[in-house]
Simulated scan of single mutants.
Amino acid sequence: MTMLVVGATGSVGRLVVAELLAHGHTTRALVRNTARAKRLLPPEAEIIVADVTRPDTLTAAVDGVDGVVLTLGSDGGAHSSPQNVDYAGVRNVLTALSALDETPRIVLMTAIGITSRSAGYGHLLDWKRRSERLVRASGLPYAIVRPGWFDMNGPEEHRPVFLQGDTRRTGTPADGVIARKDIAQVLVQALTAPQATRRTFELVAEAGPVQPDLSHLFANLTPDAPGALDGDGDEPNMPLDQEPEHVRDDLAAVRGRSDA
């Protein structure tokens, strides 16, 4: 299949590119900087130059794709703020996908503890959570993966564990850890496994080996309720009527396209 990785030169995105290629998929890497992409990505990857903050650049990137993995992450700069990238970037990709005749699958990577609303994270987690809501409202088949702390696992901790309800919210590695390479494996399998459809889950690792087939773990998860804004078991602590007006407008627009 033809897969698109958005955030392809990031620390997880580049591993997703390699994992998709290893599974035999035609893999497009959406990047802003060609030189950086050629330095970091396998030569077999098809490099697509675009910018998620500029919707007009995304049409060619999404044309004909069967699946999209979103591993977006802002760097805090004026161009790359959580609102512009983690949220609006996802919105802009979904808008581009809505023009397709096909129905591609979406896998969105966010973060464990996303529902904490802790001031310690600034607004980062709130914008990531809003991006999750857009994906759920899109009507596209999706999976949303919330990894724990990157690469803080021990050498024997590679057995993936899926959690739901986002109850680990201390904002420390005590919430769970996971290797970036193991995150990439889960994201790629979630893109093609039917058992992962409409699942939202936290991803951590415990002692044990990598598991080559994760379909049974996906199957054990509870799907998100139809029409729900949040993941199964999430604390309802972000009321829609208290959200910024433009966020409510974006959700209404995405829902309107999915109903069309």
Rank of each mutant, 00 (worst) to 15 (best):
T222R: 13
A143L: 04
E156N: 11
A196I: 03
I48Q: 02
E19Q: 14
V49I: 15
H123T: 15
M3S: 15
V161Q: 14
A190P: 05
I48A: 07
L15N: 01
L191G: 00
D101Q: 14
A22F: 07
G227K: 05
G233R: 10
A88S: 08
M109P: 00
S11E: 10
M1R: 10
G113E: 05
E206F: 05
R14Q: 06
R91E: 10
G171H: 06
T34R: 10
G122A: 07
Q242V: 08
L221T: 05
A37G: 06
G139L: 09
V62D: 00
T59A: 12
I144P: 02
R54H: 15
T2K: 09
V247E: 02
D51I: 09
T57S: 08
N237I: 08
A225W: 05
V17L: 13
K128Q: 13
I47M: 07
Y121W: 13
P82M: 01
V93C: 04
D101S: 07
V16M: 08
A50R: 04
R180C: 12
R91T: 07
R198Q: 08
L217E: 04
G227R: 12
V5Q: 02
S98E: 15
E157P: 10
A88D: 13
R117K: 13
S118N: 12
S80G: 11
L4F: 04
R117H: 03
F201A: 00
L203N: 00
V6N: 03
D230M: 09
E102H: 15
W149M: 09
G64C: 05
T9V: 12
E202R: 10
E19Y: 03
M3H: 12
L229I: 13
V177Q: 07
V5C: 08
T9R: 01
L124M: 10
M152W: 15
A78P: 15
V188N: 03
L70I: 08
P223H: 05
A29W: 04
L221G: 01
D182T: 14
V135M: 00
P82H: 03
G176E: 03
P244R: 11
N237W: 08
V69I: 14
A50G: 07
G165V: 11
P42Y: 12
V107N: 00
G154R: 09
V247Q: 09
A35H: 06
S258N: 07
L20F: 07
A190D: 02
E243M: 11
E243N: 08
D86R: 02
V52D: 00
R39K: 14
P104A: 03
A193W: 02
S258G: 10
Q83T: 14
E245V: 12
L15R: 10
T53M: 13
D151R: 09
D213A: 05
V188K: 02
L41M: 07
A29M: 09
R169T: 10
D86T: 02
A225H: 05
V177R: 09
I183H: 06
R198N: 14
N92S: 06
I47H: 01
P82R: 09
H158G: 11
I112Q: 07
M152Y: 11
V90G: 00
D259C: 13
D175E: 06
A190K: 03
L124E: 05
G227T: 05
